[in-house]
Design a protein around this nucleic acid. Sequence first.
DNA 1: GAATGTGAACTCCTTCACAGCA
DNA 2: TGCTGTGAAGGAGTTCACATTC
Lengths: 223, 223
Amino acid sequence: MTTELPAPRDVPDATVSRLPVYLRALAELASRGVRSISSQELAKAVGVRSTQLRKDLSHLGSYGVRGVGYEVAHLREVISARLGLTVTRPVVIVGMGNLGRALAGYSGFANRAFPVVALFDRDPEVVGTVVAGTPVSPMTQLARLSKELGVTIGVIATHPASSQEVADQLVDAGIRSILTFASAVLSVPEYVTVRVVDLGTELHVLAFRALNRRTEEPRESIS
Amino acid sequence: MTTELPAPRDVPDATVSRLPVYLRALAELASRGVRSISSQELAKAVGVRSTQLRKDLSHLGSYGVRGVGYEVAHLREVISARLGLTVTRPVVIVGMGNLGRALAGYSGFANRAFPVVALFDRDPEVVGTVVAGTPVSPMTQLARLSKELGVTIGVIATHPASSQEVADQLVDAGIRSILTFASAVLSVPEYVTVRVVDLGTELHVLAFRALNRRTEEPRESIS
DNA sequence: GAATGTGAACTCCTTCACAGCA
DNA sequence: TGCTGTGAAGGAGTTCACATTC
């Protein structure tokens, strides 16, 4: 056993979406040999306020030392455990266009307990080729391979027009977490979680901000 | 003149992030020849509640007809105008790895008033090659080309280790909106807007949801 | 009758102020 | 003294209820 989960209260969504950022910063600190850090310093490193950071961490339990700060190694373990990163979660990617290839080779997937174990495409020309060390399989193999390999997350990197069809196949294959890069609303059973990353939306939001340039909320700086 | 902006009140962040989704659904409807739609139908198509949709639209002004619904073409114009999509916003992409190439060829950029006008890489081997119809330029040309081409948005598709350096160069080139795919916190002047898309974070959040499978909030269905 | 538009209630998140502890 | 942890206050966003208009 590595780390217990002593405080099983539930963690707000907003906090969950920040935990990975804290985790990354802590990994960086650890690699630089930093062993202990205050909420103020860590907050500055990730661009949030120190009270926000402490409140977030308080949802996981109390792991800091008053007057001192947090132990980097321990905090990493606690956050990892809470995010469920102690378990390996095999990933499949469907759609081997430019984006799919980029994702297949993306190291952020391989690290952090998310190994890419299979790739799929419907184009017979692409099937059988090897991308980033993994052979591309035909869609007909999706259910079988996913079950064999214990896949829990499916990534959709196809055109929006096929994304619903792919989502249906992923669901049939027993996958309950879907990350899609196709800008289309997916309809899935309520027990399936979908996250949409849409590049067009990101640009739209940037464009809006540029138009209505708001004074940025001040970030914390060490006084 | 195409569309006026009669209600210049400010639009909440949460609403802004949903407007692109509405816009996409409206484009789809228009292409299918739909001329008018109720908030309930449109809400169902994008996966939000009808009251949310109406409240969002109310921030832009009153454009619906009571007892009838919204005119698709008009609503598209209003949202486009409010998002600033009537102006062309040239984009540059820095980093021609797999992800950079995928983004360069991504049609969601070319459409919607975001033409990719220049690509950059620091590798001399890559400079001079043509990606998706655009030649790759050396970093030394970034400031000059960006100014000449009137670039307003910079996309960072490099490794996290170089992303701060690239961000500095983008800022020096006069760019005030940055979209980065590198999982690192960027420090920029307060007049620059940064949006981070991190694939690792998305997976972490999915993993957490899978672990603490929550009953999804019910989506609207037409009764 | 049918659907919009919006004040008011409610829920969720953030920030403040400060008590508690090393 | 210095920094964490947290109840309370404040703010933002969502949902409700219903008045309003075609």
